[in-house]
Design a protein around this nucleic acid. Structure first.
Lengths: 110, 110
DNA sequence: CATGCATATTAGGATATTATAATATTTAAA
DNA sequence: TTTAAATATTATAATATCCTAATATGCATG
């Protein structure tokens, strides 16, 4: 009595390994979205560039806190900064992320 | 010199308030997704019911930890349990969430 | 160069999350 | 009614996150 053919098992295990890797890659991004203030900032940015001041005014959070959130998202490569005189404009780097955020806004609207 | 018409300002502020509320409502759900193990579990469940044992085997995490994650998601109403003999089958409650998870899998696949 | 405005950084305490180990519960079946 | 398997719960230590207050940096303009 030989074993069951090993290929299917192996490839399933490989699928699982792949899935785990994807989860490990995506989870940190979701972690960044998973905060009311940051999600608000990102929803705003999904509609286009904004300065820190705009973001602060809209969100009502302290300047320091906004800046910390933005710095974190910059470190993570989620947003990019562009200076224009005294102001700094932020934008979402990956259009796919913008699209996902807009998609989520729709999904959870009701 | 009268003020600028107040309606637009008011309605923009109301939009912001609405957006904030949505963020406050959605963020906790994202927080639940924002963990490699939980995301893996949910990706699996997005494809259909599974028992704790299946989930444990696939994820390789400890029984206790899986159970804690599932309990948390049950408390949050994200997932539902159904007993069948010794086994307990879990499933995602809201099809919209399943769809979102599958959508994300696609989005971040590349 | 001094002043003001916009933004960033740092330090800190408070709180939340995570994983592990140990124990409990529930069900099936001998 | 033991026993074993599947799942849940609890306690706890390690770590991470969050916010505030204070301070620093960079730029523009008088």
């Amino acid at each position: 009595m030989g074993r069951a053919p090993s290929r299917p098992v192996d490839s399933r295990m490989q699928d699982i390994a792949e899935a785990k890797k994807r989860c490990a890659r995506v989870a940190p991004i979701l972690k960044t979205l998973a905060h009311p203030q940051r999600l608000f900032l990102l929803c705003r940015l999904a509609k286009g560039e904004a300065t820190v001041t705009e973001l602060r005014d809209a969100s009502g959070a302290s300047q320091s806190l906004i800046s910390q959130h933005l710095t974190r998202m910059r470190r993570e490569g989620i947003v990019q900064a562009r200076r224009d005189g005294n102001f700094i404009h932020y934008r979402i780097v990956d259009p796919k992320l913008s699209a996902l955020i807009l998609h989520m806004e729709k999904t959870f609207n009701e």
